[in-house]
Design a protein around this nucleic acid. Sequence first.
DNA 1: TCTAAAATTAGATCTATTCTAAAAACCGTG
DNA 2: CACGGTTTTTAGAATAGATCTAATTTTAGA
Lengths: 130, 130
Amino acid sequence: MTRARGLKMTPQRRLIVEYLRGAVNHPTADEVFSAVNEQLPITSRATVYNTLNWLKAAGMIREVFEAGNVRFDPNTTNHHHFVCRACGRIDDVDFDSVGDVAFCALPGRQEIESYDVTLRGLCAACQPVA
Amino acid sequence: MTRARGLKMTPQRRLIVEYLRGAVNHPTADEVFSAVNEQLPITSRATVYNTLNWLKAAGMIREVFEAGNVRFDPNTTNHHHFVCRACGRIDDVDFDSVGDVAFCALPGRQEIESYDVTLRGLCAACQPVA
DNA sequence: TCTAAAATTAGATCTATTCTAAAAACCGTG
DNA sequence: CACGGTTTTTAGAATAGATCTAATTTTAGA
């Protein structure tokens, strides 16, 4: 989490970045806002959105969308996701848990730079009791 | 596109379904609204959203999110996506173009029902001229 | 044709996000 | 360590996307 050129470090940004580093789930913008405001009650939504967009543009967080909500993924390592069909929770799936994806040459789109896999199903908590 | 139990067929729904069947891209709700209104100027946004949600719940369309927009995917066959990093366009990628994804047993999440792969890079139109 | 149930409509409402302009903070430099 | 230009923050307004509401209209079966 280094300081980028021309950008200034502020307590607000520091708190947002620290919260994201510690987050194990995938928080929404509003969850980030609430968490940061507990420590620094001044922080406005605009600052949270600005910072999230800045981090996203810098590639330090990912934006994910599941169950109708935009969420942010602070895990910058290459990884995949598991989404529970019932409760909507999103778990990270280690990159190595999924074998390499082999894809044929796609006409006209030579430059495949990255990929990610979304696995869908029922999480442990949502398994039918049977 | 069969009629479901307890649901009535209307001109609005028919037009929306027909538009989606013919759509090669991944339209937003607003694009569906505009297209349908050209033919039936009465159609309200509420009807469009209702119908899209109904189709989504019935598994007849998929919801996708890329480049900050919620879009709908009328392709009900199992397939993947290619997203252009520069212009944001989303192309369907045939299921067979991507090899089977092998994943290890994921502790506590036995029920993996489906998966999809998102490939990212530059589309043909956005290739650097170099 | 009649009728109950369901759908449509316009507009209000709600939620998420961005914009704005003024005040405040950051930090390199003198 | 104060100065000053630039950047950031802030509160609230504005915008956009989606849902809700209550009244009217339509559907489809008898």
